[in-house]
Computed example of a mutant assay.
Amino acid sequence: MAEVPFIAIEGPIGIGKTSLSKKLAERFNFQLLKEIVEENPFLGKFYDDIDEWSFQTEMFFLCNRFKQLEDIERKYLNQQKPVVADYHISKNMIFAKRTLQADKFEKYEQIYHILTADMPVPNMMIYLHASLDTILNRIQMRGREIEQNIKASYLAQLSEDYESYMNEFEIMHPEIPVIRINGDQLDFVKHQDDLDAIIAQVQEQLSNFISVTK
C-alpha cells in the first residue's frame, strides 16, 4: 500500500465519481487521475450488444488503466505526491465477471492478475452508491450520447455487483478505510454543505498520514 495518500473513488456508472474526484483534487491539491472512458472505441458497440463486444471493451479498459497506473506511480506516488483517482483498477473484475462468457473470463482473469500484480494500491476508498432512479437521472443529466442505450436492468445488476464487491473489499482489506456516500441523500455537485461533509470525512482519514499537501 502506498505511503503517500492515494484515494480511489468507486461506484456505478453515472454516480459522480469524476465530479467528486475533481473537487477533492482541487481542495487538497492532489494529482487527479481520470479513467479513459469515451476514448474506448468499443464502448458504443458494447452497450448495443454486450455479448459480442464485451471482451474487446474490457481488454481496452484494462490495458489503458494499467498504463495510467504505471505512469501515476512513477511520476507521482514514487515522488511522494498524493493522488486521487476516479476509479480503482479492480473495477475491471466487476464488469468482466458480469459481461464475459466463462472461457473468455478465464483468459481475461489471467491477464488481469499478471498486469496488476505489482500495481500501486489505494490507501483510501470512497464508495458512491444510490438507487437506480438516481443513477438513471444523473446519466440523463450529463447527456453522454454513448450512454443513452444502457439498459436499466444492466445498471441495476451493476449496482448490486458493486455492493457485493465493496462488502468483500472491506473484509479483505481492513487496513484500507472505506468512506461510503449515499447519493440519494447527498448531492455534492449541487449542495456545498454536502460536499463539505464529504471533505470532512476525507480530511479525518488524511490526518493519519504524516505529510499531507495543504
Rank of each mutant, 00 (worst) to 15 (best):
V4L: 04
P5I: 03
F6Y: 04
A8I: 03
E10W: 05
E10V: 10
P12R: 03
I13H: 01
G14C: 02
G16D: 05
G16Y: 04
K17I: 08
T18Y: 05
T18I: 06
S19F: 06
S19L: 09
S21V: 14
S21G: 03
F28E: 06
F30Y: 09
Q31Y: 14
Q31T: 15
Q31I: 15
Q31D: 13
L33K: 06
L33E: 03
K34Y: 09
V37H: 08
E38Q: 14
F42P: 01
L43Q: 01
K45D: 13
K45M: 09
F46V: 03
D48C: 06
D51A: 04
E52W: 02
S54P: 00
F55M: 08
T57F: 07
T57P: 00
E58F: 04
M59F: 12
F61Q: 01
L62E: 05
F66Y: 15
Q68P: 00
D71W: 06
I72Y: 05
E73Q: 10
Y76I: 06
Y76A: 05
L77N: 02
Q79H: 11
K81S: 11
K81Q: 12
P82E: 12
V84K: 00
V84P: 00
A85W: 10
Y87A: 11
I89G: 05
I89R: 10
I89F: 15
R98C: 08
T99W: 08
A102W: 07
D103C: 08
K104L: 13
K104Y: 13
F105Y: 12
F105W: 02
F105I: 10
K107V: 12
Y108M: 07
E109P: 00
Q110F: 12
Q110Y: 11
I111H: 07
Y112Q: 08
I114Y: 14
T116H: 07
A117F: 11
D118T: 08
V121C: 05
V121E: 07
V121K: 09
P122F: 09
N123D: 02
N123H: 03
N123W: 00
M125K: 01
M125C: 04
M125E: 01
M125H: 01
I126S: 04
Y127P: 00
L128R: 05
L128N: 03
H129Y: 15
H129Q: 10
A130C: 14
S131K: 11
I135N: 06
L136R: 12
R138W: 14
I139G: 02
Q140Y: 15
M141H: 14
R142D: 04
R142Y: 12
R144T: 05
E145A: 12
I146M: 08
E147I: 07
Q148S: 02
Q148R: 08
K151F: 02
